[in-house]
């Protein structure tokens, strides 16, 4: 019996044949109350106002309107930053995804038997995951200077955090039978891991890596904003100078690239599973 049932005791219902059933009190009223209160608080703090939206909502489309028609001639200058963004994301994803492997292994209860060690490793992964990517990128620009190296680092850290959790969950749900069988015929732990666990985890590992890469391309476009190189850099510049047709061109090229990458990656992921 949970605490909730103690505060709000279950209702007794009597059937026609004399049997009784306890009906636990519904949690819905409490949940609804919390949601309503929090919404009210949020509306007050953020100044949410539908009237403003109704009156000035059309202003949202002003900049969007100014982007059309896009400045087609500008496209020649977009290629290099666009490729920089792609390179940053690709390299960052690979570095992050590879370096996380030993950490994820150490955070899996079925590989490491020491609960304290697993707990510390998981806390570490959690904390890395809470670091906002933007902060990582800013710090990286201070350490590595402005440019793509900073962006690559930020993406690698983000990938590390994202893949870490997924990977250790994947390793933990792997079937340990094959691992034990390998150990039973005299293989070392590492070798048993390579032959028995990796084949089970690999398809979803690559699939998640590809998924992460898709997201990273979008993220990389933001990172340039803080000076970490790539598309965000020129996007920031053109927005600052209010050259909206050029901004439109950048966004269109980013869209086509993301569309292309997602299509290829979805095809690969479907083949993997």
């Amino acid at each position: 019996m949970s605490i909730y049932d103690k505060i709000f005791p279950p209702k007794k219902m009597v059937l026609s044949n004399g049997k009784t059933v306890l009906k636990p009190a519904s949690r819905l009223p409490l949940i609804a109350l919390i949601l309503v209160l929090f919404t009210a608080l949020s509306v007050k703090i953020t100044g949410f106002d539908l009237g403003v939206l109704r009156e000035r909502g059309s202003q949202f489309f002003v900049i969007l309107g100014m982007m059309a028609p896009p400045e087609w001639g500008y496209s020649t200058q977009v290629w290099k930053p666009l490729f920089d963004t792609l390179k940053m994301s690709l390299l960052g994803t690979v570095i992050g995804a590879v370096t996380v492997i030993p950490f994820a292994m150490a955070a899996s209860t079925n590989i490491v038997k020491n609960n304290a060690a697993v707990g510390i490793m998981r806390l570490f992964l959690s904390i890395v995951r809470t670091l906002p990517t933007l902060v990582t990128a800013l710090i990286a620009t201070y350490v590595f200077g402005l440019g793509t190296l900073a962006g690559t680092t930020a993406i690698a850290v983000f990938t590390f955090a994202y893949m870490g959790k997924i990977l250790y969950e994947e390793i933990e749900t792997a079937d340990m039978g094959a691992f034990e069988a390998m150990e039973a015929i005299g293989a070392t732990k590492v070798r048993a891991f390579v032959r028995a666990i990796i084949p089970q985890v690999l398809p979803s590992y690559i699939s998640n890596g590809l998924f992460c890469f898709e997201g990273n391309v979008r993220y990389a476009a933001i990172l340039g904003y803080v000076g970490a190189g790539g598309l965000g850099l020129i996007l920031n510049e053109k927005l600052g100078w209010r050259e909206y047709p050029s901004v439109g061109m950048i966004l269109i090229m980013l869209f086509v690239t993301v569309f292309f990458i997602e299509t290829v990656s979805r095809y690969c992921r479907r083949k993997l599973v």
Binding site: R56, F60, L64, R218, I222, Y225, L251, F255, F259, E262
Partner: peptide, 19 residues
């Protein structure tokens, strides 16, 4: 997909005109 591709800070600039 198009809605998702536009980076957050671009939306931010658009909405600043509204609110």
């Amino acid at each position: 997909m198009a809605v998702r591709t536009i980076p957050a800070f671009v939306y931010g600039l658009m909405f600043i005109r509204v609110s």
